[in-house]
Design a protein around this nucleic acid. Structure first.
Length: 466
RNA sequence: GGAACCAUCGCCAAGUUGGUAAGGCUGCAGCCUGCAAAGCUGCCAUUCGCCGGUUCGAGUCCGGCUGGUUCCUCCA
């Protein structure tokens, strides 16, 4: 396995801290609103990582946190009058449902900030004790970046000059503009606060990840975890700050490898509410099946920018359709053993920093070769069974292809429409037998107008929803 | 103002020890079909934003330019 380390900026052979085991921590969402396509992409990227490592034989432990204390959540509490718990549990549930629709496997650990307060407080206390942090008059606790000689090495901002245009917030409380809040003291009665030795207040954003990692992973004398992941935007300041905190407390680096996924744009434009482009995952799921969205969002390498648009999505669907048409040809039945060369091709591709493009090309090749062989010998049972096993492996490794093929091609067709289609097809078959091609072609045109394409096969006419 | 990343066929997209451009969609031709669809076969970048440099050789390394994105503030 090779992984591109976004801190070292190079592709490296993956060597876990502990032989055969991998610890991964991915920064999860702040649960104050619905998940958008960016969350989906990140989730999908690390799902692919986890599946690949598992397929390579590693025992994977993945943690993905939920930030459930935050300014934006508190703002939502004020706006809606609902409790913080109501809001966060609602969005956590939604997030998990939507990710499930995308075929994302659940993380082994899903810690919440509110359930990790003890670990957070004790880590802050250690930072204060070690003189890496200081308590301001207000009760805020800040991390003292000047105490960390390695501060800036994660995001490569070591000698950055603080010119007047730096947009870092200047607070009198901070000794250094780069210092960041570990703990925010209570702002008043409307604020949501927790008791702590330093003051009543709540954790800053960065501390929870460091605290959770120390709480849940054992690590080694050099690193706390193998891989730390998240969106590219988190590299600075979030991961820089996490790394600094952990270094001060543990005396070693937080993660051996850092991975960051690229951004999603919509039709070439930045994804944002103000632009009014629909970017919520729930909206996309209303129109497209989760499996198709998964295939599409994973079809571009995780580190590249992703420009989401309907045309490309439909192209991706066409590619997935071909896999399912092959599955239709080899179903029903039970899979035997995966073709060795095919399995190796997929694993080799994914082992190269998750090179999904090569993997998808290998699938296309397998599909074409199998169709070809089946054209020559339609009754090749052994090949059919092997093909089913191949498709099962695709599902295990990449998370698509598991549906029953006829079901796949009928997504979005209700019973009434299905009945109408069957009636029309019966009439068409009769017309065809009577060589009334004018009528049978008219029926076909009618079906096409309904978004239904048909294929005459040796076993009768089959149809697909476009 | 500072910094990073990216720029490959009409569209999407691979391509890291530099060695002579994967794959998909579209299109065209053919097989199959009553005709289609599906499937299969063949064809479709002497060229990788532009200009220089290094090299026997560069999409791949170096410098400059242009264009796009991102970070420096909450953000996947």
């Amino acid at each position: 396995m090779y992984i591109y380390d976004s801190v070292k900026k190079t592709k490296l052979p993956f060597e876990p801290i502990k032989e055969g085991e991998v610890s991964i921590y991915v920064c999860g969402p702040t649960v104050y609103d619905d998940a958008h396509l960016g969350h989906a992409r990140s989730s999908l990227a690390f799902d692919l990582l986890s599946r690949t490592l598992k397929a390579l034989g590693y025992k994977v432990t993945m943690a993905k946190n939920f930030t459930d204390i935050d300014d934006k959540i508190i703002k939502k509490v004020e706006e809606t009058g609902k409790s913080m718990e109501e809001i966060t549990s609602f969005y956590i549930e939604r997030y998990l449902e939507e990710m499930q629709a995308l075929g994302v496997q659940r993380a082994d650990l899903e810690p919440k900030a509110t359930e990790s307060l003890h670990a957070i407080e004790s880590m802050i206390q250690k930072l204060v004790d070690k003189d890496c942090a200081y308590i301001a008059n207000s009760g805020d606790v800040y991390f003292d970046t000047s105490k960390d000689p390695h501060y800036g090495e994660i995001s490569h901002r070591v000698a950055e000059d603080e010119d007047a245009l730096s947009r870092v917030e200047h607070t009198d409380e901070k000794r250094n503009p780069k210092d960041f809040a570990l703990w925010k003291a209570c702002k008043g009665n409307d604020d949501i606060c927790f008791d702590a030795p330093f003051s009543s207040g709540r954790p800053g954003w960065h501390i929870e990840c460091s605290a959770m990692i120390e709480k849940y992973f054992k690590g080694s004398s050099q690193y706390s975890i193998d891989i730390h992941g998240g969106g590219a935007d988190l590299l600075f300041p979030h991961h820089e700050n996490e790394a600094a905190q952990s270094r001060c407390v543990t005396g070693h680096e937080l993660a051996k490898y850092w991975m960051h996924n690229g951004f999603v744009q919509i039709n070439g434009e930045k994804m944002s509410k103000s632009l009014g482009n629909s970017f919520f995952l729930k909206d996309a799921l209303k129109v497209y099946d989760g499996e198709i969205l998964r295939y599409y969002l994973n079809s571009v390498h995780y580190r590249n920018d992703f420009n989401f648009n309907e045309e490309d999505l439909l192209t991706a669907k066409k590619r997935l359709d071909k896999l399912y048409r092959l599955k239709k040809r080899v179903s029903p039945g039970k899979g035997s053993v995966v073709n060795k060369a095919f399995k190796k091709a997929l694993l080799d591709a994914m082992s190269d920093d998750l090179n999904i493009s090569i993997a998808l090309a290998a699938i296309d090749e397998m599909v074409a070769n199998t169709n070809d062989a089946l054209d020559a010998n339609p009754k090749n049972k052994a090949l059919k069974k092997e093909t089913l096993a191949n498709i099962e492996f695709i599902d295990t490794l990449l998370g698509f292809g598991s549906k029953e093929p006829f079901t796949y091609f009928q997504i979005g067709v209700d019973e009434a429409l299905k009945e109408k289609i069957e009636t029309l097809l019966a009439e068409r078959t009769t017309a065809k037998k009577a060589k009334n091609f004018e009528r049978s072609d008219a029926i076909r045109d009618e079906l096409i107008a309904m978004g239904i394409s048909i294929m005459d096969t040796a076993d009768g006419t089959v149809w697909e929803k476009a």
